[in-house]
Design a protein around this nucleic acid. Structure first.
Length: 563
RNA sequence: AGACCUGUGAUGUAAUGGUUAGCAUACAAGAUUUUGAUUCUUGUUGUAUAGGUUCGAAUCCUGUCAGGUUUACCA
C-alpha cells in the first residue's frame, strides 16, 4: 500500500501533536459511546468510522460503551441491535462497556465532591432552579440550598440513594459558578431520582447520574485518551474538564491519564433525517415497516436495502472530518454502492414492466440455451445458461412504434440486439381497444447469435435489450424505493414539520419476471439487473415467493436527456 | 444578540505563510461499449467581505456579514 502523503484531518493532527509532545502511542485509546435508545443510523457511522478508524491507524484499542444512564429510554433490544450493526460494519471493539458498570465508582466520587464542598443537594423544583440559572445574557443567582453543610448534604444524598425521597424532590448539583458565561457551569445537575428499573442494574439504583457527570468519568475509568464527539457537545467541554480535573485529584494513582474531549461536525445526508427521535416517530406511526425498512437511513435499513459495509465505509472515508456544518449529497452514497456492486455483483436479466414479444420466424416450440457472462468487470466470475424461446418479455419502455434517431431501442422496421441472443427487427404490434400495446411482433436473424462468430453476429446495432423467456420466467416481487422525503433537508424548516415532506411514492411494489437462475438466489444476495440497477434478495423471500429490493438504479443519462 | 464555533466551485473535503488553489461526487462534451451501465479523455463552477501584517495570505491580525451551538431532573 502506498501511503501517499495522505493529509491528516484535524483530529489526526491533534493526536500527532499530542504524540509529538510526549503522549505515548501505546496509551492511545478510543471509544464509541451510543445510548441504547434507538437504532444506529448512517450519521453514527461517521462517529464509528472516526474512532474505530483511529484505532486501526494507531493499532489502539477501541471500546464499545453503552451510555446507559437513563432507564426511561433505554432497552436491551437496542443494545443488541447496536452490537449487530457495528459488527456488520466490520469493526471489532476491545471491550464491551456500560456506563452503568461505573455507578458505584461515580457515587463514591460524588461523595468526595460533597465532602470537598464541590457538590450539594438542591431541594427545589426544576422550575425554580431554571429561574435562578439566568439566561445566556444574564447571570444566575445562588439558590437557597447552595450553602448547605457537608453533613446535611451527605445525609440527604445518602437518603436519596436509599430511596427515601420521591422523584423530583431532590437533586445533587455540582457547585461551580452561577455567573459563568457557559450555562452548563451554573451548578449542573449530577444526579436525579428515578424510580425506574434499569435494563442492566434492575432496581439496584434509584438515583441515576446525568450525562455530563457520567460520560467524562467513564472515559477516565476506561483511560480513553481522546474522547471524540459531535459539535453540539463543545460547550460541555468545560464541564467535562471540571469534573475530570476534580476526580483526577482523587484517583490519579489508579487512573493516571486524564482524557480529552474533541468535537467534529456530525454527518447530514440530503433528503433524509438523522434524529433518533424523529426516526422513532416514523416507526411508531407506521410510516415505515420498522427500523430496518429499506428506506430508513439506519444501518439496519441500509443493510436490508442491500448496501454493503464496504460501500458505507468508503462513503464515510470520502466524506472526511471537519468542524463545519454539512449536508452531504445522497448521490455520493449511491455512487459508492454502485462502485462496489459494479465490481462485485453478478449480472442477470429481469423485466419489471413486461410486454410480450413474439419472434414470428422463430421455429415453434424451439428452445435454446444461451450463455451469459456473470460479470464482465470481475475476472473468473464465469458464465451461466439462460433459456431462450420465441416468446419473450421485454420492458414496455423499450418499444415504440416510431421514434427519432436518438431512441436506440426497438421500433418498427429497426433492429436491436437481444442481450446474449439474436438481432431482431420490429415488424408490427397488437393493441387492445384502449390503444395499449399488448404484443409486439418481430423477426430475428438466425445467423446473428451472440458469440457464434459469424459475420452476422458481429454486426453492430445501436441498441441492446434485456429480456426473459416467458415460458421459463420466474415471477418475483420487486420493491422499488424512492427517497423518503421530497425535500433536501426535511427537518431544517422552522415553519414546517418534517412529516409534511414525506414522499407518498417512496415504495412501489411490482410484479416482475426474472431469469430462472434466480430461483436459487439466497437472501441477501445482490445482483445487477442489466440496464436497470442493483437489487438484493429481501428477508421476506421464502419458498413460495421471491422478493427483491431495488438498491439503486444504474446511472441513467438517457433518462435525464429524454426529460 | 452575551459566550463559543464555523465560512474554499452545486456538494463534501485538501492545500500546515511559498509555483497557474488539488481530489471525489455532481454536471457537460467526446471516445469505447452486445448494459444509454462500466471504462477512458476533456471541460464548467470556488478561497463570504473590507482593511491590515508580509517580499509573498485561503492560511496570521482587526472589523463586517452569514450560518450554527448554548437557557432539559435527555444523551
Amino acid at each position: 500500500m502506498s501511503e501517499e502523503k495522505k493529509s491528516l484531518n484535524f483530529i489526526e493532527q491533534i493526536i500527532e501533536d499530542d504524540l509529538a509532545n510526549g503522549a505515548k502511542v501505546e496509551n492511545l485509546r478510543f471509544r464509541f459511546p451510543p445510548e441504547p435508545n434507538g437504532y444506529l443510523h448512517i450519521g453514527h457511522t461517521k462517529a464509528i468510522g472516526i474512532s474505530f478508524g483511529l484505532g486501526e491507524k494507531y493499532n489502539a484499542p477501541v471500546n464499545l460503551r453503552f451510555d446507559d444512564t437513563n432507564p426511561a429510554k433505554e432497552e436491551q433490544e437496542y443494545v443488541d441491535a447496536i452490537k449487530k450493526d457495528v459488527t456488520w460494519l466490520g469493526y471489532e471493539w476491545e471491550n464491551e462497556c456500560y456506563s452503568s458498570d461505573y455507578f458505584q465508582q461515580l457515587y463514591d466520587w460524588a461523595i468526595q465532591l460533597i465532602k470537598d464542598g464541590k457538590a450539594y443537594v438542591d431541594s427545589q423544583s426544576s422550575e425554580e432552579m431554571a429561574k435562578q440559572k439566568g439566561t445566556p445574557t444574564t447571570t444566575g443567582v445562588a439558590g437557597p440550598y447552595r450553602d448547605r453543610s457537608v453533613d446535611e448534604n451527605i445525609d440527604l444524598f445518602t437518603k436519596m440513594k436509599n430511596g427515601e425521597f420521591e422523584e423530583g424532590s431532590h437533586v445533587l448539583r455540582a457547585k461551580i459558578d452561577m455567573s459563568s458565561p457557559n450555562m452548563l457551569l451554573r451548578d449542573p445537575l449530577m444526579y436525579r431520582i428515578l424510580k425506574k428499573s434499569h435494563h442492566r442494574t434492575g432496581n439496584d439504583w434509584v438515583i441515576y447520574p446525568m450525562y455530563d457527570w457520567t460520560h467524562g468519568e467513564s472515559d477516565y475509568i476506561e483511560q480513553i485518551s481522546h474522547s471524540l464527539c459531535s459539535l453540539e457537545f463543545k460547550p460541555h467541554r468545560d464541564l467535562y474538564n471540571w469534573f475530570r480535573d476534580n476526580v483526577y485529584t482523587y484517583s490519579k494513582e489508579n487512573y493516571p491519564l486524564p482524557p480529552k474531549q474533541r468535537e467534529f461536525s456530525r454527518l447530514n445526508l440530503s433528503y433524509t433525517i438523522m434524529s433518533k427521535r424523529k426516526l422513532l416517530k416514523l416507526v411508531e406511526e407506521g410510516v415505515v415497516s420498522g427500523w430496518d425498512d429499506p428506506r430508513m437511513p439506519t444501518i439496519s435499513g441500509l443493510r436490508r436495502r442491500g448496501y454493503t459495509p464496504a460501500a458505507i465505509r468508503n462513503f464515510i472515508e470520502t466524506v472526511g472530518v471537519s468542524k463545519r456544518e454539512n449536508i452531504i449529497d445522497v448521490a455520493l452514497l449511491e455512487f459508492k454502492i454502485r462502485e462496489d456492486l459494479n465490481k462485485n455483483a453478478n449480472r442477470v436479466m429481469g423485466v419489471l414492466d413486461p410486454v410480450k414479444l413474439v419472434i414470428t420466424n422463430y421455429p415453434e416450440n424451439k428452445e435454446e440455451i444461451l450463455i451469459a457472462e456473470n460479470n464482465p468487470e470481475l475476472e473468473d466470475s464465469g458464465s451461466r445458461e439462460v433459456p431462450f424461446s420465441g416468446e419473450l418479455y421485454i420492458e414496455r419502455e423499450d418499444f415504440r412504434e416510431e421514434a427519432n434517431k436518438k431512441y436506440f431501442r426497438l421500433k418498427l422496421g429497426k433492429e436491436v440486439r437481444l442481450k446474449n441472443g439474436y438481432i431482431i427487427k420490429g415488424e408490427s404490434c397488437i393493441k387492445d381497444e384502449e390503444g395499449n400495446i399488448t404484443e409486439i411482433h418481430c423477426t430475428y436473424d438466425p445467423l446473428s447469435k451472440s458469440g457464434s462468430g459469424t459475420e452476422e453476429s458481429k454486426r453492430k446495432v445501436k441498441g441492446t435489450l434485456h429480456w426473459v423467456s416467458i415460458k421459463h420466467a420466474v415471477e418475483a416481487e420487486v420493491r422499488v424505493y424512492d427517497r423518503l422525503f421530497s425535500d433536501e433537508a426535511p427537518d431544517s424548516h422552522k415553519d414546517k414539520d418534517y412529516m409534511e415532506f414525506l414522499n407518498p411514492d417512496s415504495l412501489k411494489t411490482i410484479k416482475a419476471f426474472v431469469e430462472p437462475s434466480l430461483r436459487k438466489a439466497k437472501i441477501g444476495e445482490r445482483f445487477q439487473f442489466q440496464r436497470l440497477g442493483y437489487f438484493n434478495v429481501d428477508d421476506d423471500t421464502n419458498l413460495e415467493k421471491l422478493v427483491f429490493n431495488k438498491i439503486v438504479g444504474l446511472r441513467d443519462t438517457w433518462a435525464k436527456k429524454s426529460k
